[in-house]
Design a protein around this nucleic acid. Structure first.
Lengths: 145, 145
DNA sequence: TATAATCATAGTATACAAATAGGAATAGAG
DNA sequence: CTCTATTCCTATTTGTATACTATGATTATA
């Protein structure tokens, strides 16, 4: 029941781009230094975010990445699902591909559904902007987003 | 973010013992047939439940297992934590052993705490008796617990 | 043309998941 | 008192996923 590094790092990556946004493209080298994650691993993770259209990349010198939209456009759920896959606690809740023969007589299915909903409820109701705002309130910082 | 087979099977095992309880000890062979899980794997899983005192075992002919307490005594959380380990979505929320240097400046820590609480809230407020009752209501069965 | 970056693909070490296997100990039945 | 059905104990296996690292091609700017 753990969120993997891919999901966690993707979130930190998006947050880093949001917080350090100046309008310019931000190279992964900088994100790597700030977040203490290797550039190579970040590259692998950001590929998915680019393909999903959450992040825009520019090659070459002065290249880098920036969020395609605003921090409030991206929920934690969107980012985690992209990098982690489904957040369902059991496979039989994932789409129609993992249908379970025992579903009708399954005593625990309802419980897993409830757990799934609780998880979704948290991640889908929190945006990057929310996280930054809460952090500013707590720490007294004022990251410009 | 998946519950492993150990956790899921442990829950089904406890439920099977609860539902099929007659006062006698129930051999794993029967549970195995009903739940379609190998006896050998069930043995491995039930060991933990016995050591925790959730289940009592008796060796030899006419031996088997039975719940030590009543179905309402056991929450899903108790059973899952025993077999899965902590249900924390990130390691830094687990006890004091996994302390993270970045905790103070971590923007995502609050989110993980919220998620953790949401998960705990579900599993700690559902007992085996609840699951059986809900199932009876849904299916029209009347398992004697 | 040099440089700094993304982009694409492959490889690797480790740990965890999901079991299976073999046999010793024991409680009851006959 | 022996047979049998069971728990109990420890090891081994197999596959898959995680968490990276490595190499090199491409491209945009200075």
């Amino acid at each position: 029941m753990k969120i993997s590094t891919k999901g966690r790092y993707a979130l930190r990556l998006m947050l880093d781009l949001a917080i350090n946004n100046t309008g310019e493209f931000i190279p992964l080298k900088l994100v790597s230094e700030r977040q203490d994650i290797s550039v190579k691993y970040l590259e692998q993770i950001i590929t998915v975010l680019v393909k999903a259209g959450y992040v825009r990349g520019l090659r070459g010198s002065r290249g880098g990445y920036k969020l395609a939209g605003k921090p409030e456009d991206y929920t934690v759920g969107m980012i985690l699902r992209l990098t982690e896959g489904s957040l369902a606690p059991v496979a039989c809740l994932e789409g129609d591909t993992n249908y379970c023969e025992r579903a009708d007589e399954c005593i625990t299915l309802g419980l897993w559904k409830e757990l799934y909903e609780a998880i979704n409820n948290v991640v889908d109701n929190t945006t990057l902007a929310d996280l930054i705002e809460r952090y500013n309130d707590k720490i007294g910082n004022d990251y410009c987003i």
